[in-house]
Design a binder for these strands. Structure first.
Length: 430
RNA sequence: GUGGUCGUAGCUCAAUGGCAGAGCACUAGAUUGUGGCUCUAGUGGUUGCGGGUUCGAGCCCCGUCGAUCACCCCA
């Protein structure tokens, strides 16, 4: 017999984790709706070009991390490696530029696929929630979105998390900054770590990200993008900061914050636990992408968005001991004895469920003891026992599983007419 | 893609190169139809997979798959 395993970097989300997921889903959807964002769900896969062009040909994601395949008509498709590009494609395809702008979306529990070497907090399939807002460049939108992300995690009860903020300029000022960076680093080339030698040629912004100790002094002395922004970008960045200050949102400017997707312009931000030396603990990140809609074939349209990893969010909440709502338990467990009772029990279960009670039906030919054990393990509050005696007089014996072990037997259970089952249970379950 | 550590029952783990085990969980019993505590029994394994060395491999060697940690990068 072959035995199958979930494939590398994927995992099952089991019932024991369901409530944690649901808690996050609720916090996200309710908070987003409060901010006027509406839910969107786009297909799991797109034509490869959507991501290749959107995310950027030179990025690691496109170069070596996409799940790309040809379908039976030889069309190149890709499982979404991030949440933004598909949403932009939908915005363009459905002519949403005709709606009042900005158009504000959120997505939830969206599977994201990246072919990477798995490790803690990093999977080949993971899930994100996120927001996108298109058609508006007002810095108030940037501030609102950062506040929204912050709000979600506050609502979830996460502690000690920080927002890092930076501006990486736009098509006007960034090329000049990158050139300045290259000019600064080129004379130092021979003294750089091997990774940085590659970065200098391939993705100079990433030089700022290096963690090699010997390169830190070079980074500290390197030109900073904040000093090189063009006038409009500088004004935009200032406005975002002033709004965040006015809203009282804690954030820190990180002049070294750059992001790995090519489409970002101006505002970029990340959310991470306060004392996380490790980079893969970032739980959310995003930024403005004013050129992206045009890049994907739409009219020039500003936009901004973020994505946040749900597995990482759950890890964080677990690590911080945030209380997860308990899994709902049955309110009634019905224990039938014998074939006739089982038929009666099935019908009774349906009646009770129709009145919104959570009912667990006991299956099979089992002893009373076995039923009681199963009921106890299920966490059911009451057991409704139906055997020969109860069948004979149309009753059921109801046992209160929450009664003290020391209580007298007649305090623990009572015989109730089956016709009064709903009323009896409802009055006691509040 | 690179490097370190590790793969034994559903879970957590034992077992000098010499008969594969325990606890938990699960199932069933402990005088009539009653849970939790206790006791007893039972189910459950091709020791991740494939080769090799050896009289004999869970243990040693090689490969492979996977997990984990770090790098790279990202959520």
């Amino acid at each position: 017999m072959p035995h199958f395993k979930s494939v590398q970097g994927t995992r099952d989300i089991l019932p024991k984790d369901a409530m944690a997921w649901r808690m996050i889903e609720r916090a996200v959807s309710e908070t987003c709706e409060r901010y006027g964002y509406q839910r969107i769900e786009t297909p799991l896969f797109e034509e490869t070009g959507v991501f290749a062009r959107g995310v950027g040909e030179g990025t690691d994601i496109v170069e070596k991390e996409m799940y790309t395949f040809k379908d039976r008509s030889e069309t190149s498709l890709t499982l979404q490696p991030e949440g933004t590009a598909g949403t932009i494609r939908a915005y363009i395809e459905h002519g949403m530029h005709t709606l009042p702008q900005p158009v504000k979306f959120y997505y939830l529990r969206t599977p994201i696929f990246r072919y990477e070497r798995p490790q803690k907090g990093r999977y080949r399939e993971h899930h994100q929630f996120g927001c996108e807002a298109l058609g508006e460049s007002d810095p108030a939108l940037d501030a609102e979105m950062i506040a929204l992300l912050w709000d979600i995690y506050q609502r979830l009860g996460a502690r000690d998390i920080v927002i890092q903020l930076n501006s990486i300029g736009d098509r006007t000022c960034r090329p000049a900054y990158i050139q300045a960076l290259v000019d600064y680093y080129t004379p130092l080339q021979d003294d750089l770590c091997d990774d940085c030698k590659v970065r200098l040629l391939k993705n100079p912004l990433r030089l700022l990200d290096c963690k090699e100790p010997r390169d830190q002094p070079k980074i500290a002395a390197a030109p900073k993008i904040a000093d090189r922004l063009c006038e409009p970008c500088a004004a935009h960045f200032t406005a975002v900061r002033e709004l965040l200050d006015a809203m009282g949102l804690p954030y820190t400017i990180n002049p070294l914050l750059v992001r790995g997707l090519d489409y970002y312009t101006r505002t970029v931000f990340e959310l991470a636990p306060e004392q996380s030396g490790r980079r893969q603990s970032a739980i959310g990140g995003g930024g403005r992408y004013d050129g992206l809609v045009e890049l994907l074939g739409g009219k020039p349209t500003p936009g901004i968005g973020f994505g946040s990893g749900m597995e990482r969010a759950i890890d964080l909440l677990e690590q911080q001991g945030v209380a997860i709502p308990p899994t709902p338990t049955p309110q009634v467990y019905i224990a039938p004895l014998g074939a006739t009772a089982r038929a009666v029990a099935s019908v009774l279960a349906q009646h009770l469920r129709a009145t919104d009670l959570r009912v667990q039906l006991g299956f099979g030919e089992r002893s009373v003891k076995a039923h009681m054990r199963t009921a106890n393990a299920s966490g059911a509050r009451f057991v409704a026992l139906i055997g020969a005696d109860e069948l004979a007089n149309d009753t059921m014996t109801i046992r209160d599983m929450a009664a003290s072990p020391d209580a007298a037997e007649d305090q623990k259970q009572v015989n109730v007419p089956r016709s009064e089952a709903t009323i009896w249970l409802k009055s006691r379950l509040g």
